[in-house]
């Protein structure tokens, strides 16, 4: 096999990317196909974790670490917490279940959505030759500068939205002493 005829040059970076992307894909598939809720959640954890490493290979340490802090470290822990609190085990189903009409329709809709997104993204991505972001792209200083200058109002509005969410959840969860 002639390696030079491939559209992409086989570099160590490509190997690492393929490894990480493969793990991410496999774990994403696992999220859907495991019947046990805990294992699905764990696959999602692995997926988020490996995604962070993909960001690291792109020189975006900040983005990757925020991915780990927010998704792997906080959101997925809460997911697991809820799953464990409800103590969900594996779903028991009959093997000779009749083929559901939802399955083929779902697959077709999914493929349609995938091809729609891919048709927009892939032609753009093919052109990109440099595999790395420029130095200091997405460093804490750069992110902070951008957030507090160009995107100050969207940032503040998002913060207020989160605050409203927190207050709302406290209001909903509050125990009423005098009903």
């Amino acid at each position: 096999m002639d390696l030079s005829k491939l559209p992409v040059k086989p570099t160590p970076e490509l190997g690492i990317f393929l490894l990480l992307a493969g793990i991410a894909m496999a774990s994403a598939v696992g999220v859907i196909f495991f019947r046990n809720a805990i294992r699905s959640a764990l696959c999602l954890v692995l997926n988020f974790f490996v995604l962070a490493f993909l960001y690291f290979t792109l020189n975006c340490e900040m983005l990757g670490i925020v991915q780990i802090v927010v998704y792997t470290g906080a959101i997925m822990v809460l997911f697991l917490f809820v799953i464990m609190l409800l103590n969900l085990g594996a779903i028991q189903t009959d093997k000779d279940e009749k083929l559901d009409i939802k399955l083929p329709v779902g697959i077709m809709l999914g493929l349609g959505l995938f091809s729609l997104i891919a048709s927009q993204i892939v032609p753009q991505m093919i052109k990109i030759q440099t595999p790395k972001a420029p130095d200091n792209f997405g460093s804490p200083q750069a992110v902070g500068n951008t957030l507090f200058s160009n995107y100050l109002y969207p940032f503040e509005i998002a913060s207020i939205l989160l605050l409203v969410g927190i207050v709302g959840s406290i209001l909903l969860a509050k125990r009423r002493l005098n009903p």
Partner: peptide, 25 residues
């Protein structure tokens, strides 16, 4: 010696919960 040292520390320490939670489950 990355420019996100403290954040890295927080991120990894937040992963510590998985061992305990999964062990308990």
């Amino acid at each position: 010696d990355v420019n996100i040292g403290v954040l890295y520390m927080l991120a990894i320490s937040s992963l510590g919960v998985y061992g305990v939670v999964l062990g308990g489950y």
